[in-house]
Amino acid sequence: MLDQKQTDIPGRGPGAGVQAPLPHPTGGSDFARLSKLIKDSGLMGRRPVYYAVRMSLILVLYVGGWGAFLLVGDSWWTLALAAFLAVVFGQVALVAHDVGHRQVFRRSRASAVTGRIAGNLGIGMGYGWWQDKHSRHHANPNHEDLDPDVVPDIFVWTQAQARKATGPARVIGRLQAFLFFPMLTLEGFNLHVAGVRALADRSLKQRRTEGALLFGHFALYLAALFTVLPPGKAVLFLVVHQCLFGVYLGSIFAPNHKGMPTFTGTDRPDFLRRQVLTSRNVRGGRLVDTALGGLNYQIEHHLFPSMPSPNLRRAQLIVHRYCEELGVLYLQTGLVESYRQALTSLHRAGAPLRQAG
């Protein structure tokens, strides 16, 4: 059932600037009518110039970061470059995300090749593993039985999960709201390990190519660190870089669904409500859009995953007004408030574990 008790969701309701009603198409489901409005607005069209510029800039930053690393050499200043490259790696991950959703290329082959180069070779993330996991998340967001992102492996997301928790989740779940951001320092390492483990799955497409690119990344990465830096500094660079990379990635994805209602069993509303009720938008300007890669428009992204990310800002106005007219709850918050809501929900979910002693 819908787990409304696991989250406080303040801030829902009307937004600023809602004016005349939208011209609703007739016939079809609620989502079909919204989809027609979006398509008629031209927001599903490709943005080749935008992505050419964005991907070129990120490539320049990526190459420039590693070039600066080689030039600086054996110096403590390389730790500043580790922090810089953590952000660049996060931006590469966001490009891989958009490519995986077919936002950039029409052809699946071009998407797959670019995704593997960016993911596997660029940042050491198994693209095939991620795409399978992320597709299942999009199909059933916050469904405890179907969404791999709410599996209670380390954290518990509802009190029902807490009562059944075993292993690490039973220990960590007691203080998980306080441990959430510190635990994100391990997320970069987790992505690498998960990508390698996925290579054992024979159903993984292009498994040999994925493996070659993934281990190619590891070899080049470690060779650069231990050739340029003495062992101690190399290890410190690796820790700083990977931990900050993990925190940045987690900070991008944490506001999207954490602390939102969850589903269980056969409780699955229609597509529009399934996506809107479980997602949270984050308000902000162009800086927030860039830092979060457009995923601050999470509701619109979940409704139209193949929509190019620069179009989401305009789509948000249409979707928000449409949801208001339907009476579908639609949540927008500031960035800090989104983290507060997520952490509050985590703390509440772990209550049965604290009560158990």
Score class of each variant (00 low, 15 high):
A254Y: 05
K164Q: 13
E187A: 15
F237E: 05
P255Q: 06
S75L: 00
G119S: 12
A118R: 01
F105N: 03
R46Y: 14
P14H: 14
V60K: 00
A177T: 04
V196N: 01
G17N: 15
S111N: 15
G265L: 02
Q159D: 09
K133Q: 00
P25E: 03
A86I: 03
H241M: 08
I318A: 02
L287H: 08
L225Y: 06
R354M: 09
N142T: 03
R286D: 10
Q4E: 13
L184N: 05
L343H: 04
H241A: 07
H97R: 05
Q4R: 14
A219D: 04
R109Q: 07
H320W: 14
Q206N: 08
E300K: 12
V18N: 11
K258L: 14
Q275H: 08
V18S: 12
A291G: 05
P352L: 05
T344D: 14
M44H: 07
V49D: 07
N256M: 10
W76E: 01
R102H: 12
G28Q: 10
S56E: 00
A223D: 02
H192Q: 13
I154W: 11
Y50T: 11
A342W: 07
R286K: 14
I117H: 01
F304T: 11
S111E: 08
T262I: 10
G216D: 01
E300Q: 10
G67M: 00
T166Y: 00
M1T: 13
A112H: 02
E210M: 02
A291S: 12
G285K: 12
P48F: 10
A68Y: 04
N281F: 14
